[in-house]
Design a protein around this nucleic acid. Structure first.
Length: 548
RNA sequence: GGCGGAGUAGCUCAGUGGUAGAGCAGGGGACUCAUAAGCCCUUGGUCGGUGGUUCAAAUCCGCCCUCCGCUACCA
């Protein structure tokens, strides 16, 4: 166990101000498939998802509903967790920025940055909404009447300055450039890396890491005089303010690895192998985050993968405010958990934006899952059961074996470079090869010849059905990271046990199982064929939700 | 404005100098093990526009149009 390779991956934590949309869960579904693949490989895998729960904005929303912030975010967290459960997401920890160990973690990071001379008191200036706090320049609506807050159109924004702590990002410019040069695959895809390089080369400014007014946040652990802001009774001096966004949110990745409470765990899990994020927060993960870690004497993560968006019709980005997003509950209700995972990851390229629609999902489901894959398993199991009396036939070393070896190689290459849609494409080329094999060999004709006493036909029949059953076994296992609920059902129809647990842990190294004929010597009986993916009518679906 | 990317069949996209491709959707056919699925064949595009380079351009160069990303403090 301790000698197993370890793999630690994370998604961005979701802002807990709303119910999740499918576009939010997209990266979580993709990350889950990657996590499951590593578990099945035999890697000691740790997979983190979670929620980002502090901010003036959330406190404001909670107050508007007459609730405490805690009560407000607890409800949102329940929504996120149930959405993840519906999609069979398998995090090893669902981390919340309100978790006590995360509070300690964020405070320790601030202390380390202070001890290292990287934070200092400065003045933050910006547009301030009396109802909501400071607003980013990009979030300010300028009108003839002055600047307004988009969330509070009637409210005049004020230009305010506040005494805040700043992080000396500017001190890390050279080291960041060197790090990007020495680790060309630190940020991928490459065009996202280039954007970050361009940003660094423009010159880096320091950024503020505290807010004086905010109360719904992690207490800033350092007082103005540099001493601890914790009082004798254990409470925190409100005068010190709270930690502002990035020194809270990003820290979750090390909290989830054991920082600072469990040094042994942290030594094992950090640095993370992979952060999967959207491009809106690329800069914070690829530039701020390594600098923050270095300041604390810690290592940068090994890779940041920047995925694309789900686009609605017309190329519009899906968002709750636009109301053009897909509700994951609708998608799961229509396609099942596995179907929802499949159509999302097959239809949306993992490295760039892709337009999707309910119709495109239905078409993809019917074509790939019902017609191609589901029907392949169904017809293979039915024929083998009928023509061979239910005894599971053994594979040969024919053309399907070669097709499999090619498909598996491509599948692994694409999966390991995070092109999940292409990885599935490689597998489905093999599905096509298996279906063509059926029509080429025509087992039903061979079966008639066998009845007529043709010994050669009997050998060929057993061979082609053996190859088809083996194709189904391999596809069931290979697709398991994407279709975790289907994999055991396929194994059962083929008369095999399923050695992996609900999260993909516990079984033999999957690459051994994915060898053609790996279980050839194992006797067994086929079960009754049972459709895996019922075909859907191409009716108009729920479509975009109307509210968020 | 600067930097980068994209505009190719109804849809989603491959294709970087040599007679336009895939999957899906649409049409036809032969079969029948199967979820009216699968298999075979097939309709369909002046490759955003324009001017060049070249024996030859979707592919190279100029200009133009459209869209998108990055261009600092959203969570």
């Amino acid at each position: 166990m301790p000698d197993r390779p370890r793999y630690y991956l994370t998604t961005a934590i979701a802002y807990a101000n709303n119910r999740p949309g499918l576009h939010t869960l997209f990266e979580v579904i993709g990350a889950d498939a990657i996590a499951r693949w590593h578990r099945m490989l035999g890697d000691d895998t740790r997979f983190l998802t979670g929620t980002d729960e502090h901010s003036v904005n959330i406190a404001q929303q909670a107050a508007a509903e007459g609730r405490t912030p805690r009560d407000f975010v607890d409800e949102k967290v329940r929504l996120f967790k149930s959405a993840e459960a519906a999609l069979q997401i398998s995090p090893d920890r669902f981390i919340r920025t309100t978790d006590p160990d995360h509070v300690r973690s964020a405070q320790e990071m601030v202390r380390r940055a202070y001890a290292n001379g990287d934070i200092y008191l400065g003045t933050y200036e910006g547009w301030y909404c009396p109802s909501e706090g400071f607003k980013a320049a990009s979030d300010v609506v300028e009108t003839a009447q002055g600047a307004h807050c988009p969330n509070h159109p009637g409210v005049q924004l004020q230009w305010l300055s506040e005494r805040n702590w700043f992080f000396r990002l500017s001190a890390y410019q050279d080291r960041l450039l060197r790090h990007f040069e020495e680790h060309p695959d630190f940020v991928e895809p490459e065009y996202r890396r280039n954007e970050m390089l361009g940003f660094i080369r423009q010159g880096l400014e320091d950024f503020s890491i505290s807010r004086a007014g905010a109360t719904w946040g992690i207490p800033f652990p350092v007082a103005e005089n540099g001493e601890s802001s914790q009082r004798e009774d254990g409470s925190w001096d409100p005068e010190a303010g709270t930690i502002y966004v990035w020194y809270d949110a990003l820290i979750n990745y090390i909290t989830g690895a054991g920082f600072p409470d469990d040094p042994a765990a942290f030594a094992r899990w950090w640095p993370a192998d992979l952060h999967i994020i959207g491009h809106d927060i690329n800069r914070f993960h690829s530039i701020y985050w390594p600098a923050m870690l270095w300041s604390a004497g810690l290592q940068a993560p090994r890779k940041v993968w920047v995925h694309g968006w789900l686009l609605a019709r017309g190329g519009e980005r899906m968002s709750k405010s636009r109301g053009n997003f897909l509700d994951p509950a609708d998608v799961v209700a229509a396609f099942g958990a596995d179907g929802a995972r499949y159509v999302t990851l097959r239809e949306v390229a993992f490295d760039r934006d892709t337009e999707v629609s309910w119709d495109s999902f239905v078409r993809r489901y019917n074509a790939d899952l019902a017609n191609d894959f589901g029907n392949l398993v169904n017809r293979s199991v039915t024929m083998a059961g009928r023509y061979l009396g239910g005894v599971r036939p053994a594979p040969t070393h024919g053309s399907l074996m070669l097709a499999w070896q090619h498909a598996l190689q491509r599948y692994r290459e694409k999966l390991e470079s995070f092109l999940l849609h292409d990885a599935l494409g490689a597998l489905w080329e093999f599905v096509g090869a298996a279906n063509r094999e059926v029509d080429l060999e025509k087992p039903w004709e061979l079966a008639k010849a066998v009845k007529a006493g043709d010994a050669d036909a009997e050998r060929r029949l057993a061979g082609v059905l053996g190859d088809l059953i083996e194709a189904c076994r391999l596809l069931g296992l290979a697709t398991a990271p994407f279709l975790p609920g289907t994999a055991p059902r396929i194994a059962a129809q083929l008369g095999y046990g399923y050695p992996y647990g609900p999260d993909g842990n516990g079984g033999p190294p999957v690459l051994e199982e994915l060898r053609w004929g790996a279980r050839a010597g194992e006797p067994g009986r086929l079960a009754a064929a049972e459709p895996l993916f019922p075909r859907l009518d191409a009716e108009p679906g729920p479509g975009p939700s109307s509210s968020g």
